[in-house]
Nucleic acid binder design. Structure first.
Length: 894
RNA sequence: GGGCGGAUAGCUCAGUUGGAAGAGCGCGGCCCUUACAAGGCCGAGGUCCCAGGUUCGAUCCCUGGUCCGCCUACCA
């Protein structure tokens, strides 16, 4: 392979890298590089998956971001991690598919549109359903899905040719198929129950869409005929149809079963007293008012005791006609008024402050109103059982493990899932009601007439919960219900990567629906990553206004640095983002850039044949061995989704081994024209190690690695398609690593003396190593290297005695003397040695104590005891040498 | 109320079969050595939250406590 400044072969002739021999900037400029590569990768079809291609399938369904969304930190993290996995597997020979898409996000879009329409001076009602939907689609086409473009900026290598939208034709058909099947199986049904109503969004919500928020309210004790009871919702008093006490509560036993006429704010009300286990006799007065129409507990009590339902709060959050003179009042206003009125009538016993959790809508943050309405439900319990089993049997593995417990707990206590929403944007429920005979028909095809009587039909106006369609995502995107090749090849997907915040919303639903419809799990692994928080630990969110726009950050520091930061921080339960950290990895990218500059600018006249003939030096063998170690570490880490371990292995190797040591060593032969063989050998190693390191790093930093790789001698048209580094056992060389460690220790020891004694780097030092045998050979063979790195003239002499006026260090048993004549007085050396002695004294004491304990010698494993003995001998020897040295300084220095 | 997690250097965090603790940033000192000052070399800095227990030995395992998070829940 001939090298001419870095570019080779015709395969890269169309790559827009800068001219090969032009000066390359000493600052890495991410903006220019990043803009260049993505379009090229995409045009060349590198992201596209082919079910017929070779290799074991590896697939990821991208969690579809909301069409309303714009890229935030959570997306950046999750997408970066998925891209890392996909790129790695693709390079590693898998048939990799990462399938992207967006979610129609019914309620989120509803909120956005509400705002837009208001600004345009119109409304949902003005437009009507047709007009509204047309407007919604228009909005979706124009401004929805900007996130998809931002993902490109992130370097996401997903297969855009397979991009899906939860409301596209295919997925809509999958939704209908699923709905109809569940209906036919009796798992979908309609029921009148108490549901969570959001008066702002004007729709029902499922239980998990209701968030809890601590509020300070008043706990009002109301005199209620013969009893007094406490409530935080006095306004619902108007809907009371009963009182309840605990069955065992003797205080009230005489009242149970009676019907009371209780004087109230608006005449008298009639309530029946019932006994129910749900009442806690120790709380409040032990009596509760039962409002079946506006409280879930009361609803259940009411059902058990046949109490009538009285609805006093309407869909608009205002009091209904049933509320008598309070009709038309807002529910909270009514609460204030009713308390005032009761006060006036002397019906209030006392009022206490009370802190409790109220349910609020997860989108609009409005206080949810429990109401009794007829809705569509899925009986998820049987599905949940199968989903639990799948995890128990390890067909699905949830990582980190600790989340499995949470998963089980939720699944085991699952409630029916309310799936109908009173929104227009979404999948309309495929149910038709006959206006003539009132029959209900669920059908995959649109109905025009009643299949039973031929009468006119009208479709249910409601749409489905967004999460219903996303629950089908892993298979609906691959063509289900059709038996497609994609589906056969890429299902089950390999891993689902997402945040634990949607474990129930989404992961659980996919597990249930995937297993139910596909008879196989939707994913083998579930990797739940950290939640991104700001420096104060707050969840990053727009409403909190605590977010630096990730796109701005990417622009500032470069996408690669940004991605690497996310990988490095990915471990743990939540990650706090900090700009300093990103800056650090920006520097890392720059380090790589400059290291590559060094290599590229020293490839002139490279003679591969000569390199091949020249045996490798210790440093060459060492760096290849360390590279192999890094490859092993990265692979192991990635297998376990330990992104930060992988990042740290890469960082450590590239910066602190390759740059700090090998590159410095390589300069010796690169700049030495007298030994062309050594130079060639070094060039070959540099290229090989750097090229492999780039491939190893590519999934994490795709842009800079491609840019540099193209300039290096390489095979293939893109690093994306190059193989991921693999190693075998013989790639590690323990002996070379040991020897090199000794050499490095010696260099460090001399540097240490220089640093501690404040000797300027420019001052040349002279040192003698007292070593014999193999050690002597090793130091002699590598003396040039040691001399250059430690800036010292080195002599190896097994019989050396310590010169007058010198500093001493001990390296692996060998003594090193650094001559200080005329450089520094020995007072400094004395201090330095004293410090060292103090350390050894501590260590010797510790080890002696430990070994002196009879229990330790008898009970601890033999190898541990032996190791500690060795350590003691070592430390004692070191101690003796240092003490002697101190005495010597005392004699010689004075 | 129930469940889960965390407490380790000034800051942010790693640390799995228990054997005197690591990284990044920050800090101090010396250096513009021709890849990189977004750099190099050297260094300082820890009662691994507290109290018990198990063990020859505990940052790690067990129990209790304190302080922080998160999830979940029909005490009105």
């Amino acid at each position: 392979m001939a090298v001419d400044g870095g570019r080779t072969g015709a395969s890269v002739s169309d790559t827009p890298t800068s001219a090969p021999n032009a000066e390359i900037s000493d600052r890495y400029d991410p903006a220019a590089v990043e803009k260049r590569w993505y379009p090229l990768w995409e045009q060349r079809g590198y992201f596209r998956a082919d079910p017929n291609a070779k290799g074991k399938p590896f697939s990821i369904s991208m969690p579809p971001p909301n069409v309303t969304g714009s890229l935030h930190w959570g997306h950046a993290l999750t997408m970066s991690l998925q891209d890392m996995l996909t790129r790695l597997k693709r390079m590693d020979g898998f048939n990799a598919l990462w399938l992207p898409g967006t979610d129609h996000a019914s309620i989120a879009v509803h909120v956005v549109l509400e705002r837009i329409l208001a600004a345009e001076g119109t409304s949902k009602e003005d437009l009507g359903r047709e007009g509204y939907l047309a407007r919604a689609w228009q909005w979706k086409e124009e401004s929805g899905g900007q996130i998809v473009h931002q993902l490109r900026r992130l370097g996401a290598s997903c297969d855009w040719s397979r991009e899906r939208f939860t409301m596209d034709a295919g997925l809509s058909s999958a939704v209908r198929e699923a709905f109809v099947r569940l209906w036919d199986e009796g798992l979908i049904y309609r029921d009148d129950r108490i549901v969570n109503w959001c008066p702002k969004c004007q729709t029902v919500l499922s239980d998990i869409e209701v968030e809890r928020e601590e509020r300070d309210d008043e706990f009002v004790y109301i005199k209620y005929g013969p009893v007094t009871l406490g409530t935080v919702r006095p306004e619902t008093k108007l809907g009371d149809t009963g009182l309840a006490v605990h069955p065992k509560d003797k205080r009230y036993r005489h009242l149970v079963g009676k019907t009371l006429e209780v004087p109230s704010v608006d005449g008298t009300i009639t309530v029946k007293v019932v006994a129910d286990e749900a009442v806690d006799p120790k709380f409040g007065t032990g009596v509760i008012k039962v409002t079946p129409g506006h409280d879930p507990v009361d609803f259940d009590i009411g059902r058990r005791h046949n109490l009538p339902i009285k609805t006093v709060i309407g869909l608009d959050g205002k009091m209904t006609a049933e509320a008598g003179r309070y009709a038309g009042l807002d529910r909270f206003e009514c609460r204030r008024r009713i308390v005032e009125d009761m006060k006036a009538l002397g019906l209030i016993d006392k009022i206490e402050p009370y802190r409790h959790a109220v349910g609020i809508c997860y989108r609009s943050k409005t206080v949810v109103e429990p109401l009794v309405l007829k809705q569509w439900w899925v009986n998820v319990q049987p599905l949940a059982e199968a989903a639990i089993k799948a995890v128990r049997e390890r067909r699905i593995t949830i990582l980190p493990r600790s989340w499995t417990k949470t998963y089980y707990h939720w699944m085991e206590n699952i409630h029916p899932w309310c799936i109908s929403r009173q929104l227009w944007w979404g999948h309309r429920i495929p149910a038709w009601y006959c206006e003539k005979d009132g029959s209900v028909h669920v059908s995959k095809e649109d109905l025009r007439a009643c299949p039973k009587c031929g009468g006119p039909v009208r479709q249910d106006p409601d749409t489905l919960d967004t999460w219903f369609s996303s629950g089908l995502w892993p298979f609906s995107t691959l063509g289900w219900p059709d038996d497609t090749q994609d589906l056969r090849t890429y299902y089950p997907t390999s891993v689902l990567v997402t945040g634990p915040d949607i474990l129930f919303f989404w992961v659980a639903r996919m597990a249930m629906l995937g297993i139910h419809f596909m008879k196989d799990v939707p994913f083998r692994d579930v990797y739940l990553h950290a939640i991104v928080r700001d420096a104060e630990g707050q969840k990053m969110s727009k409403s909190k206004g605590n977010v630096a726009d990730p796109l701005v950050v990417m622009e500032k520091y470069g996408t690669d640095a940004f991605r690497f930061t996310l990988a490095a921080l990915a471990q743990g339960r939540d990650i706090r983002i900090s700009e300093e950290r990103i800056e650090g990895y920006r520097n890392f990218a720059n380090k790589l850039w400059n290291a590559s500059r060094l290599v590229l600018s020293n490839l002139g006249g490279f003679d591969p044949a000569l390199a091949k003939k020249t045996p490798p030096a210790l440093a060459d063998v060492w760096i290849e061995s360390r590279l192999a170690a890094a490859v092993a570490d990265v692979r192991t880490a990635m297998k376990r989704y330990r992104f930060s371990d992988a990042a740290s292995a890469l960082y450590q190797f590239l910066w602190h081994e390759f740059c700090d040591w090998y590159l410095e060593i390589s300069k010796l032969s690169l700049y030495n024209a007298e030994h062309p063989d050594r130079r060639a050998r070094t060039q070959a190693t540099l290229v090989r190690v750097l090229e492999a390191t780039l491939r190893l790093l590519h999934p994490f930093m795709p842009f800079i690695t491609e840019e540099i790789w193209q300039r290096l001698p390489h095979k293939g048209e893109s690093i994306m398609l190059a193989p991921y580094p693999k190693i075998s056992k013989k790639d590690r060389n323990a002996q070379a690593e040991r020897q090199m460690a000794a050499v490095m220790d010696l260099v460090t020891a001399v540097r240490n003396i220089r640093g501690e004694m404040r000797i300027a780097p420019a001052v040349a030092l002279t040192a003698t190593v007292r070593a014999g045998g193999d050690a002597a050979d090793l130091f002699t063979a590598n003396s040039a290297l040691i001399e250059s790195l430690a800036r010292v003239r080195l002599t190896v002499d097994p019989t050396a005695t310590r010169p007058r006026s010198s500093a001493m260090a001990v390296v692996g048993g060998a003594e090193v003397y650094v001559d200080l004549t005329g450089i520094v007085d020995l007072g400094a050396e004395r201090q330095r040695i004293e410090k060292e002695i103090a350390k050894t004294v501590e260590r010797v004491d510790f080890l002696k104590n430990k070994l002196a304990k009879p229990d330790f010698a008898e009970r601890a494993p033999a190898d541990i005891v032996a190791r500690e003995r060795e350590r003691l001998v070592e430390q004692e020897a070191l101690h003796a040498k240092l003490v002697a040295s101190l005495a010597w300084v005392g004699d010689g220095g004075r």
